[in-house]
Every structure is written in C-alpha cells, then in structure tokens.
C-alpha cells in the first residue's frame, strides 16, 4: 500500500503535478485543494503525471472533468500524462478519455497546450 502523495513543479507556464498511490474519495480532496489553489492563482495549464498512480475512482475522475472544464473556460486545460495501462483501460472503457486528454510523454503533452 502506497500512501497518496502529491508533488508539484513548474514547467514554464505549465504546472506538472506528480501523483502517487490511490486517488479515491478519501484522498481526492488533497488534489482538489491543490488544483483550486492553482486556479485561484490564474494557472490553468496543468498536467497530472499519473505514472505512479495505483487507482482512481469515479469521484476523482468526475472531479477531474470538472477541473478540466474550468481550465478550458479560461483557455487552459488539465491533461493526464503517463497513465498506467491498467487505469487507462478502465477510463477508456467508461468513456472518460473522450473528454480528458491523455498523453504518453511530457513533450507531446506540453506541445499540445496552445499557449504554453
């Protein structure tokens, strides 16, 4: 069992947030608080590095959609990076990849932001 951890770093105008452990209804408020702070600061370009993520539940996925919508309303976006295959299969099957953009490398994700 890995404890849920969040680490944040800046890549120019883009905020890269590394997630580790399980993102469920118990741990999600910590990420929610961090994203709210970023948006209050006007930082709407966000990448979530999911490579160390073990699990994500619907509370987390639904909220990520909400944050992506908020970011897009401000010409930004929230994108997922390096999603483990086990999690990707689930979110693709459910249809979340229809609105959440997922990238395999940081370079491609960074390039996808219109105004990095």
């Amino acid at each position: 069992m890995r404890e849920f951890r969040i680490e944040q770093e800046s890549r120019g105008n883009i905020q890269l947030i590394h997630l580790q452990g399980s993102l469920d209804m118990y741990s999600f408020p910590r990420l929610e608080s961090q994203l709210q702070t970023l948006f209050q600061q006007g930082r709407y370009y966000v990448m979530l590095d999911c490579s160390q993520l073990d699990y994500i539940g619907s509370a987390g996925l639904g909220a990520l959609i909400g944050f992506a919508k908020q970011a897009r309303d401000h010409d930004g976006d929230l994108k997922l990076l390096r999603v483990p295959e086990r999690i990707y299969k689930i979110i693709e099957l459910l249809g979340f990849t229809k609105v959440l953009q997922v990238y395999t490398t940081e370079e491609i994700a960074r390039a996808s932001f219109q105004k990095p």
């Binding site: 619907s58 509370a59 996925l61 909220a63 959609i65 909400g66 459910l94 249809g95 229809k98 609105v99």
Partner: peptide, 14 residues
Amino acid sequence: IVDRIRAMRSGGYG
C-alpha cells in the same frame, strides 16, 4: 455514462 461525461458532469457515476 458517456452522456454524463460529454456533458462534463462531475459526479453521479458510481
């Protein structure tokens, strides 16, 4: 589910 996702609803998926 897909309709809720396309509408970018934040909950009600469980």
